[in-house]
Design a protein around this nucleic acid. Structure first.
Lengths: 330, 330
DNA sequence: CTGTTAGCGCTTTCAG
DNA sequence: CTGAAAGCGCTAACAG
């Protein structure tokens, strides 16, 4: 910076003002300084800038698994907005592990990021960040009654629509394949499932709700047990990973879809439209969800929002494909 | 830090040493300082640390499209290694646009990252970074005869194996669907395709090589034209995106796979094992590719490598599934 | 082994 | 509108 100052015949402070601040520098000087900076290939040092001005443009993004297209889409939406607004994304995979998540949060804190977007694993993480003055937006789910801003899919609505769709086809025994109901995602989807049964006036057999772990192979095994133990004419899988397992088991058993059994899943991902028949699902608008997270966080950072926490709930869209059809006659 | 120092009855430098450097502080003092730091919830400021020590642990990762599972897997592999080694990943999508790529590189430079991993779009980007003293590893492809370290898939070998596989089934007219041959990826895959024909002693009709753009819909249209204009018994798609388009067209035409036509693709991604029949492909070990990039970069940063540039070439693995079979009788 | 001293490169008062 | 001076929070020399 000194070099630029000397070359342009001004002081360092003026260079700083000419390059970043607006006003506070005559047009003539500003242009001269910018030309010199360009010529010398001067690149300002973010670290020094941030240190001095006690601000930073980096944003931490804490997600569970980049290899799951849901999280990849979310991250892509977030990154798109951040980049266009001159921010940087520090991305961390926490693998769904609370310890890794907390460790990552501490690193982000140390880096003095301007904010964090997190798909929380444990409530302690957003809490710790907030307490340290870092703005936090929870993406996809919220834990506890944390006071953070959040952008969520309307899980109850989506599951309700999927279930209504199946019920309208005459399915009365729909197996719900689900991995967790402690987070707002699983809880919402289960609630939507129940609500649809209730609205239809059909009593729900609790044995139709089967729990598995968040893993395609486990889901396949669970589907296997479900098919053996319960008379179901349809399966509703609570997310894209479980759907893979369910589909694998149905194919292995050579059950005709949807003639013999219908399959529907929460969270549309690319393979669902490529398999034959295509899987009926709900599109969560995941990339948009990511964009909203980033917009909300930036608005918060710029102090453009009322203090009260804001929760944005995005309605998913039912996507009907070939995997669902009329329930077989008895 | 002053607070910690005062509370522990030592100087700031001692706190610094106790917390980070090893040796240079008595065990007793170290433990006391750490305890105090813990109690006060002290989190060291990375910016100040980096500014003073003129080092940084952040690494820039510049890729084309996070929503493509290839890049997502690559990023996941990179992130895994970086995180385990105490580094952070700043991820930027450049959307395959040279201007966005260059702009991102400048930002990373300004942030004083310790190194950059890039799937280059234009040769100017790795060049500019190197010239500014930033270590660069090119991932997946290299442009020009850039002197950067690189981790690449052995594209020629992979395409050769796929083509050999098809030829061995008696296919003589294999349509190669490809988007570009300027980068080392496309060029290598084309070379492998040619090499297989040559080794088999079959003359290659140049009309079998059809160019399209990097987009599933365009690939579908191109496949449509290929099927109309050329007698082909098999299609080889140069990457996972083009394969989607090719498959869509074959399904739309209700061509039996592989009875009427075989389909093979470079780059195994999840949907290829979920569709029926599964797609024959080569697995690039993408996550490993990412890990290698990160390991190579870190070794370079730590100055553990000879000056000469290192290029790691990873052999892909042929994955035979149901989409390829004997060529139909004439 | 530890304290003191001097900055890293930049921005922000404060005068002028 | 511009320059001089004073640090941001930390670590690297240098003595002790």
């Amino acid at each position: 910076m000194q070099d630029v100052a000397r070359e342009a015949g001004v002081s360092a402070s003026t260079v700083s003002r000419a390059l970043h601040t607006r006003g506070y520098a005559s047009r003539e000087v500003r242009e001269r300084v910018q030309a010199v900076a360009q010529r010398l290939g001067y690149v300002p040092n973010h670290m020094a800038r941030n240190l001095r001005s006690r601000t930073s443009t980096a944003i931490g993004v804490l997600i569970s698994d980049l290899r799951n297209p849901f999280y990849a889409d979310l991250a892509a939406g977030i990154e798109e907005v951040l980049r266009s607004e001159g921010h940087q994304m520090i991305l961390v995979n926490d693998n769904g592990d609370p310890e890794e998540e907390m460790h990552a949060a501490e690193t982000l804190l140390a880096m003095q990021v301007a904010g964090v977007i997190v798909t929380p694993v444990a409530a302690g993480c957003p809490k710790m960040l907030s307490e340290n003055g870092i703005h936090v937006v929870c993406a996809d789910r919220q834990l506890g009654r944390a006071g953070s801003d959040a952008v969520l899919s309307d899980n109850k609505l989506g599951a309700r629509e999927l279930t209504d769709h199946l019920l309208s086809f005459g399915h009365e025994r729909i197996g719900l394949l689900i991995d967790e109901t402690k987070w707002s995602t699983g809880a919402g989807r289960l609630a939507g499932f129940r609500a649809a049964y209730e609205a239809a006036g059909i009593e729900l057999d609790e044995n139709l709700i089967v729990y598995t772990s968040f893993d395609a192979e486990a889901a396949r095994q669970t589907t296997n047990e479900l098919l053996d133990q319960q008379q179901v004419t349809a399966i509703l899988s609570a997310n894209n990973v479980l759907a893979q397992g369910a589909l694998a088991e149905l194919k292995a058993r050579k059950l005709k879809i949807p003639r013999r059994i219908s399959l529907a899943a929460y969270d549309d991902v690319p393979w669902m439209s490529l398999v034959q028949p295509g899987i009926t699902t709900v599109d969560q608008h995941t990339v948009d969800l990511g964009r909203s997270c980033a917009q909300l966080l930036l608005a918060r950072i710029r102090d453009e929002l009322p203090a009260r926490r804001r929760v944005i709930r995005v309605a998913p869209r039912l996507v009907i494909r070939g995997s669902t059809g009329p329930a077989p006659r008895k």
